[in-house]
Amino acid sequence: MFAEFDLVMPSGLDEALDILAEAGGDGGLDVLPLAGGTNLVVDLRARRVSADKLVGLGRIAALRGIERSNGRVAIGAGTTLSDILRDPGMAEAAPSLVESARVFAGQMVRNTATVAGNVCCGSPAADTVPPLLSLDAELTLTGRDGSRVVPLADFFLGYQKDQRRPDELVTKIAWDAPKPNSANLFYKLARRKGDAITVVGIAVTVAAEAGKCTTARIALGAVAPVVKRAREAEAMLEGEALTPELIEVAARQAVEESSPIDDVRASADYRRHSVHALTRRLLTQAWDPATVGG
């Protein structure tokens, strides 16, 4: 049977933060924010999660929306996966994120689920996280006493552990739109294109200048306790021309930086093989002169 809880639907952010802050006190009430609910409602029904109270964020209009100015892109925490797909500017502002939104669950979930909620669930298979890592995204965490900005690359502390305090909300996710002469790609390996949990998800960013790679990002999903960057592989690429030989070496290094497990969807061996193959494929595509402009 469904867990029992109270539900409040504040119309302003301050009210929501007050409720979360009071809960953290001596009362010991277990209060959880409810965004799209596409994970949380399932977990509550299965009694994997319990809560005394849910703070629904769906009525806080200020949290929803996409802003772009001077090359900076910011999405409010209420922004859904469908909002990402509907915004014609996102194809340039976050190509990898758009690709991940296309293969994210099904339409009804995309209409409800938020990008910030996908990040905060902390799943290693969360589809929006490799793209956001490849874009060097930053999260704004807001509590009653103010806001702080945390790079997404530092946000996850371990399996389903992150830097958000229970009295804080992620209110914004922001990044710099990819520069000219750069490529930003994502590939989700799964049994089907829709309605499937990711076996391996990889996002890469490659920026080039005068025939050399100036910035490389490789983000690995579903092959470690958290979505993570293959930093040593990235370092091998920066400052170099991405020859097929170098791409091969970096792809092997990315495998070294993964630590996949066997589970119902795939074996660890298959995941390692896929990290190698997909990293090589995406880097090769990204380095294509048509993509990074040679």
Partner: peptide, 29 residues
């Protein structure tokens, strides 16, 4: 399925399809 996989429960909320099994009634005032 009652977990957002099958879509049998889809309805429109303000013209947009959602899985009614994942939507709490109290959020829909």
């Amino acid at each position: 399925c009652e977990k957002g996989d099958c879509g049998a429960c889809a309805v429109l909320v303000d013209g947009e399809a959602v899985d009614s099994c994942l939507t709490l009634t109290g959020t829909l005032e």
